[in-house]
Amino acid sequence: MTIELSVDEAAQVRLWHRVSQFLFREARLLDEWRLREWYDEMLTDDVRYAVPATDVRDGTTDALGLVDDDAARLRQRIEQLLNDEVWCENPRSRTNRMIGNVEILADRGTHLDVAANVVVHRFGHGRSDAYVGKYRFELVVAGESFRVRRRVVVLDHETLYEHGKLSIIL
């Protein structure tokens, strides 16, 4: 038996597929430390990358988080990670990002609100850590693909007591 998709459903499946492929490619570039490529090809010029505090997760902007990078500081972060001056990422961590539950929350024509679950496994300096959280993306539609304008990673951990630090890009 074949399942007939309506025109609308087929469009939704195609969009979901394209979004998922985009997120998977992003995960692969980050896992492979192809950070400049990621920055140049997948982000907007006004990108924001944020990781809120583990004890304030309601999205209030007056709180202090763990990461709140604009494009310039994210670029700095990347250059530091790549130039081997970062002691805690030298040698570089091995990472494995597992993405699931990809969901398009809203299609606003020029951009999409996308949610996904993520586990980032990180191995380095004799340690293994898993960062578990939720991605909240704002993707700007750019032809057949997208660019990330807003990238928020809401961690589910109560604390980072086990991890100690967050020296990779989630």
Partner: peptide, 29 residues
């Protein structure tokens, strides 16, 4: 100025800043 304070706090300090993670790693070392 509060935003500047928070922004520069995060740049240097905390588990994802540009300094504290290296402090954590070196004392573990």
């Amino acid at each position: 100025i509060r935003e500047l304070r928070k922004s520069h706090y995060l740049t240097f300090l905390g588990p994802a800043g540009f300094a504290t993670p290296d402090d954590i790693e070196i004392i573990e070392s």
